[in-house]
Amino acid sequence: MDNRNCKRYRDEINKMELTLPAISVNEGMARAAVAAFCAQLSPSPTDLADIKCAVSEAVTNCIVHAYKHKKGNFYITVNLYSDKTVRIEVLDKGCGIADVRRAREPLFTTDAAGERSGMGFTVMENFMDRLTVSSREGKGTLVVLTKRLGRKTAEEE
């Protein structure tokens, strides 16, 4: 679906698929695995740190919000492209998000008692070039994170 929109001159050079149970110890596992896979594009330390942080946020959302600490898996697909673009999908089959626009607002959280900062989507948005969130209540959520490596972020410019 997404491929129709990006008629860029680039080829997929590698792809990784990863399925993990939604338990909190896998937050570290997921970001380490994605970072190790992205290393073949020789990212800068800043780019790599941004990706790790964004993946950590997306995966934490699966564990805390989508499955609410109940059993389930999350599915990560990473595509690497020849123009140094990284595309990361994080999919869950959890409860879904009722109002995606609201969920993406800074400081919004449905779990105030849990000391959540409500900054997860804000971090993903700021640390990556592009964030898309598609969700259906009762079905699950798909988060797509895209970043072209070696580009300066808005802050650095």
């Binding site: 790790k52 942080c53 950590s56 946020e57 959540r116 900062s117 997860g120």
Partner: peptide
């Protein structure tokens, strides 16, 4: 070495 938004929640608390 690493901190995500969970760290923000921790510091706020």
């Amino acid at each position: 070495e690493f901190m995500d938004s969970a760290g923000l929640g921790l510091l706020m608390g």
